[in-house]
Every structure is written in structure tokens, then in C-alpha cells.
Write a protein that binds this DNA or RNA. Structure first.
Lengths: 165, 165
DNA sequence: CTTCGTGCAAAACCTTTGCATTAAA
DNA sequence: TTTAATGCAAAGGTTTTGCACGAAG
């Protein structure tokens, strides 16, 4: 992997994961593959419980246990494929950290929804600040807290988006 | 100094808390006052467990139960006196959100040091973005990851911070 | 009085772990 | 075969909650 991997996506998530695993003397098992596929089947944010409830109820040989889902998510994070972007309703929220443009999030404290926005402006400021401090920046995470448009105009009562299953 | 000055900080945390509580038809009890005092007795970051272990072992009439500490921290957060700034070791980290300038952090992945910088620039961008999305912003948290000046130029060996707190 | 708050213990959650069994390489 | 991974259930840790009692307005 001496190629420039900074421009666009030339390597699939699975290849990247496989490579990471090999450097760790770990294996790409059927279970890890299933988790990987499920996670990258959509670009939506998700939390562990959502994934677990999907995969522990899958039929036959697509079933993966809770423990393995948790353990695999750790590996996916370490491999650079996933990252935690927020915390909502007491759960970490994950998103793809590979092959998609940099962005940050507006986090609604009422319903827990996440809204993405491009990180371009923020990145400029961050770069300037980093330079000022001689800090070699590798990334950032910005969470904006408040109330989303919908909840602002909606009723005062709480409508937390809990499990959607 | 005139007590009509509402610019700058002329109101103590306790006064602000009292005011908040009254708007909620809630009471400034002895227990809430003790938690408040303990929290504002220093500017250090802290987590719930630290506070709980201090206050549940206090002598006699300064003792506060775990449940009340948790409940009071929620009120302090809602009142705008406290905010969560990070998550470490599975616990939320709190800091004062009143009477001190807004700032964010550069986080060194080598030595673990935190460097604060003023949030003014970031806040402008955040406000603009929030407005665009009809998001009623109440605050933000920005963590910049990378390597600090010292570690960049320093020895190649690692100087990981000792586990604090 | 009436309402709100506290403390306790239990419950609810989320995450990790020990261990016997299975399965990659 | 050798070593890593899985699944299960139990354990760990954090946060919330039901309830009876006590305190504040």
C-alpha cells in the first residue's frame, strides 16, 4: 500500500479492511464480512443497537452475535473505515470514514437527529488555528448542539427517535 | 458597580441557577446548593463519578446521594451553567459553561495534551450554518486531532500522558 | 396542605469478558 | 495443525426510576 490513497477511492472498503486485518494477523471471517457488508450497504448513520438487532435476527448463515458485532465495529474503527461522530440517546453514532467528503453535524437534543453540513469553512479555520500553534492537524470533529428546525416548530413534548424497529 | 449591568458577568452561578430553577417551579434545596458549590469550587474538568464519590462520602449535612448528584447535574446543564465537553473512559466530562470565554481544543495524539484556543472564528461559522438549516444552536464542541508542536519537533519516542483521573 | 425533592435499592441499559466450541490460514 | 474468532451467558459499569419519607413554599 505505497500508492497514494488520498485521492478518491480506488480501494473498496472490504479490501481496505482485509489489508488492515492482515497487518494485525487477524482474519476476514464470514461474520466480519457480513458486518462489513451491512454497514456499507447504506450511508446512513447508525448505532450499535441498530446493527445488532438487524444481524442477530438475520436468517441462518447471515446471523451474527451481539459480541461479534461489537468486536467487529472496533476493528472497523481501528481500520479507518468507521468513526464515531456523535452521541445520541446514550449511544455512540457511527458513520463511514472512508470515501466520503468531510462534513460535520448539527445534533438535535430533542429528537437526536443528525444533520450533515460540509466541513469546508470549518476546515479553513481549523487549519489556520493549527498553524498558529504549530499543531500538525490530522482531523477534527465538530458537533453543534441545539434544536432542529422540525423540533423548533413542533410541540413542546419530546419525540425522541428511539429504536426504529 | 451597578447591578443593572447585564453585560459581562455580574451574576453568580448560584444566582443564575436560582433564576433558572424558579422559571421551572423548582427549588434551590440544600443538596442542589452543595452540588453547585462543589462544582464551582474549581475550574477543572470532572465527571459524574468524581463528584459522586466526593459528595457521597462528605460528612454529615454535606452528604448528597448519587441519585441527587445525577439529577442536579442535569439541571445545571439545562440552566446553562455546565456543559459536556468530551467523553473519556466511558464517562461524560463536564466543564463550566458560564463566566469563561468560549474555547475549543487541540488534542495531541502523542502526548495527550489539550491546547485551548478561542472559539470566536468557529462560532461565526457555526452560527451561519445553523441559520441556514433553521437550527436553533445552543453550543458546540470542536476537537482537533493531531500532533502538538512539542511532539512534532521532539524526540521520536513516545511520551504518552500518564493516566490522569 | 400540596408539591417537589431526596435517598435507597432495584431496574434498565450498554459494553465487555471468560470459556468452550468452531473455523480460518 | 495452530491460532484466532464466535456465541453464549455472566459480569461490569453507568444512568435512570419507583416509592416512601421528608422538606419547602
Amino acid at each position: 500500500m505505497s500508492d497514494l490513497e488520498s485521492v478518491s477511492v480506488a480501494v473498496s472498503p472490504r479490501d481496505k479492511f482485509r489489508e488492515y486485518l492482515s497487518t494485525q494477523n487477524k482474519r476476514l471471517t464470514r461474520e466480519r464480512d457480513i458486518v462489513l457488508e451491512q454497514v456499507f450497504s447504506s450511508h446512513e448513520h447508525f448505532d450499535r443497537e441498530e446493527l445488532v438487532s438487524t444481524l442477530t435476527t438475520s436468517s441462518g448463515d447471515r446471523r451474527v452475535s451481539r459480541a461479534t458485532v461489537y468486536r467487529t465495529l472496533q476493528e472497523l474503527e481501528r481500520s479507518g473505515l468507521l468513526r464515531k461522530v456523535a452521541r445520541a440517546n446514550g449511544r455512540d453514532v457511527f458513520e463511514h470514514d472512508y470515501g466520503y467528503p468531510q462534513h460535520d453535524h448539527l445534533i438535535c437534543g430533542e429528537c437526536g437527529s443528525l444533520t450533515e453540513f460540509p466541513a469546508t469553512e470549518i476546515s479553513k479555520v481549523v487549519s489556520a488555528v493549527s498553524a498558529t500553534h504549530g499543531f500538525r492537524q490530522s482531523g477534527h470533529r465538530l458537533e453543534v448542539y441545539g434544536t432542529c428546525d422540525e423540533c423548533c416548530r413542533g410541540s413542546r413534548g419530546r419525540h425522541p427517535k428511539l429504536d426504529m424497529l
